[in-house]
Amino acid sequence: MSALFVLDVPENEGVVRVAEQDAVLQVDKVGPYFRIALDDHDRPAPDPGEAVGAGHTSTAQQIVIDRRATGCRHAVWYSAVAGLQDARIVQHDKNALRLVHR
């Protein structure tokens, strides 16, 4: 399992909503945080792969949050991640936040 934590505040709602709509991700609550998880255990840590453009969703190998789908602008987008659980950020730009298993 790879996961990221996102604090439950109004600005992060778009990130959580995109994760909830992503069929391969699970979203649950740990205190006032959302845990956005990908069930990828038993997998070796993958190659970080290529940066993706806009409009991508997660796969069995990676968590992908599409920035435009979240509606987040600069400041919140780059400060939305509160924690990384067995996960590594391999892309965090204007298009996407992308994480793979650590």
Partner: peptide
């Protein structure tokens, strides 16, 4: 962020 995730698991639910 990796260390903070551990602290979230330890403390956020109790909070």
């Amino acid at each position: 962020l990796t260390r903070k995730a551990e602290l979230i698991v330890e403390r956020a639910a109790d909070w």
